[in-house]
């Protein structure tokens, strides 16, 4: 009974499917980012209170959406990896983490840039920004644990446990932070979710959201591929050691 070492790092089907998707996703990203930014920067109206600064929202809000979605996606991949031991699942959670962290960072930076003209300060302990910051810490912890194990299969399991614990905790943290915020600064902060979002704002927002999504898919495919190749390289070196 010979062991095929390569079966653990040869997700051929994944590579085949992504090879088809990749050019479309890349093209869609460029197209949607172009249209979305055009609508966001030129077509959509100024806010009667915030003026042009409201346009930051089109970069900020979809980034915040993505930061949460990517974390959920990582949790699901981690669960799949733990339960079915699918090799691509672990790699995909690993590959997604830095992208999610970047979206979170983008949401934090744009949030704080937006805060300056609106609230007169770069950082407010607004519930959402705070939750976002904590989510950013969770991403950092996740990436740090991958770095800390020498054995990739162990790292995958440890990271999976961590991201699942984090995912269970995220709603609790969110709840506690919302609650903390209302306790400390009752409704002094103007936020965007008015009852009515006009379609002239909503349309570019959704376009930008979709653009971010396809950007994620594009970068994600590149990163997973890189991880798979990395894995193979490692295997080849090990095979050399055997001889």
């Amino acid at each position: 009974m010979a062991i095929d070492l390569h079966k653990f790092a040869n997700p051929a089907r994944f590579l085949r499917i992504t090879a088809v998707i990749f050019p479309w996703a890349a093209a869609l990203t460029l197209l949607l980012l172009g249209i979305g930014l055009y609508f966001a920067l030129f077509v959509s109206p100024e806010d009667y209170q915030q003026g042009n600064t409201v346009r930051i929202m089109f970069v900020h809000v979809p980034a915040a959406w993505m930061s949460m979605s990517v974390y959920s996606m990582m949790a699901i991949s981690a669960a799949v990896g733990l339960i079915w031991k699918h090799p691509v699942a672990d790699l995909s959670a690993k590959a997604a983490a830095p992208i999610g962290a970047c979206f979170t960072f983008l949401a934090l930076v744009t949030g704080s840039l937006w805060g300056q003209p609106m609230w007169g300060t770069f950082w407010v302990w607004d519930a959402r920004l705070t939750s976002m910051l904590i989510l950013f810490f969770l991403y950092l912890g996740y990436m740090a644990i991958w770095e800390s194990y020498d054995d990739p299969s162990k790292a995958a399991k440890a990271a999976a446990i961590l991201v699942l614990v984090g995912a269970i905790n995220v709603p609790v943290i969110k709840f506690s932070v919302d609650w903390w915020n209302t306790l400390h600064q009752p409704a002094s902060v103007a936020t965007m979710d008015g009852p009515k979002i006009h379609s002239s704002i909503l349309t570019p927002l959704l376009i930008m959201g979709t653009a971010y999504m396809s950007l994620f898919v594009t970068v994600f495919i590149i990163r997973v591929k890189a991880e798979i190749l990395n894995r193979r390289l490692r295997m080849m070196r090990l095979v050399q050691l055997e001889d």
Binding site: G166, F175, S176
Partner: peptide, 15 residues
């Protein structure tokens, strides 16, 4: 690393 992993999860208790 332990601090980085654990402290964010402590936030609800703190609050």
């Amino acid at each position: 690393l332990l601090s980085l992993l654990v402290l964010p999860l402590y936030i609800p208790v703190l609050i």
